[in-house]
Simulated assay, not measured.
Amino acid sequence: MPESDMISWSDGDWTRTPAALSAEGGTLDVTAVEGSDAWRHTAYGFVHDTEHALLAPLAVGEAMDVSFRAPWDGQFDQAGIFVRIDHEHWIKAGIEFADGHLGLGAVVTEVRSDWSVGHVDDWHGSEITVRVSRWPDAVIVRARASHGEWRLVRVAPFDGGAAASAGPFLAAPTRSGLVVRFTRWTRSAADAALH
């Protein structure tokens, strides 16, 4: 992977203010508000635009990595990276705990959301890193647990002509008290190849 530059937690702006924040020793502990989520229409019939995402600019040709840890014990607890053009055009990618399983996936939203996910139960307890690379017509999502191999998660269409921002996100649709520890936020050159 290309060399990366650290992004300060103070360099981003929150889409929705979390319940609590605590920065110490380079990490950021964030507590989600109960009922927070991001989804538009598909299958469930609702629009939720209440996620907590800390966003900084992401240009075409750049990548962003977010690393984090969470307890993963509440239904639909989720954390990872959020990439946003506006409230109808965004991607969230990372981990979601659902129905007793840890899922690695992405929600790609172009007015309506779609969700792709696969189980990664063996990642429980690991520090997880999610990486997005912005190409002229796409966002490439990769992820890994600890220092394991990178996995390709998604190749999603994304408007290269639009201004976009990205950064750490979390949400807790069904409970209060979810605390995610974000351990790293970096920017680098986008991955040059898919394979």
Rank of each mutant, 00 (worst) to 15 (best):
P2V: 05
E3R: 15
E3T: 11
E3N: 14
S4C: 10
D5I: 13
I7Y: 04
S8Q: 11
S10Q: 15
D11M: 11
G12T: 03
T17Y: 10
A19C: 11
A19F: 03
A19M: 07
S22N: 15
A23E: 15
T27K: 09
T27Y: 08
V30T: 07
V30D: 00
T31F: 11
E34I: 14
G35Y: 10
G35E: 07
S36C: 07
D37A: 06
A38Q: 14
R40V: 09
R40Y: 00
T42R: 03
T42K: 00
A43G: 02
F46A: 02
V47L: 04
H48W: 13
H48G: 10
D49Y: 06
D49R: 12
T50I: 06
A53T: 00
A53G: 14
L55G: 02
A56K: 09
P57H: 08
P57Y: 03
P57Q: 03
L58Q: 08
A59C: 11
V60C: 01
V60E: 05
E62Q: 15
A63I: 03
D65H: 09
P71L: 01
D73A: 14
G74P: 06
I81H: 04
F82D: 07
F82H: 14
V83E: 01
I85R: 12
H87Q: 15
H87M: 11
H87E: 15
E88N: 07
E88F: 11
A93W: 06
I95V: 10
E96F: 02
E96M: 09
A98Q: 13
L102R: 04
L102S: 00
L104N: 03
G105V: 04
G105K: 01
V108L: 12
T109Y: 00
S113P: 04
D114F: 10
W115K: 00
V117M: 14
V117E: 06
G118N: 13
H119I: 14
H119Y: 14
V120C: 08
H124D: 15
H124Q: 14
G125D: 08
S126D: 14
E127T: 14
I128E: 02
I128P: 01
T129G: 00
V130W: 00
S133K: 05
S133M: 05
R134D: 11
R134P: 09
W135Y: 04
W135F: 06
W135R: 08
D137W: 08
A138E: 12
V139W: 02
V141Y: 09
V141N: 03
R142G: 03
A143S: 03
R144L: 01
R144M: 04
A145Q: 02
H147S: 15
H147Y: 13
E149S: 13
W150K: 08
W150N: 02
R151I: 10
R151Y: 10
R151E: 13
V153C: 06
A156H: 06
D159M: 01
D159C: 00
D159V: 01
G160L: 06
G160F: 06
G160V: 04
G160S: 02
G161E: 12
A163L: 14
A163N: 13
A163Q: 13
A166Y: 01
A166P: 05
A166E: 03
G167K: 08
G167Q: 03
F169C: 13
A171L: 12
A172F: 03
A172V: 06
A172E: 10
S176M: 05
S176T: 12
S176V: 09
G177N: 04
V179S: 02
V179H: 10
V180Q: 06
R184V: 09
W185P: 08
S188M: 10
A189R: 15
D191M: 09
D191K: 00
A192G: 05
L194E: 10
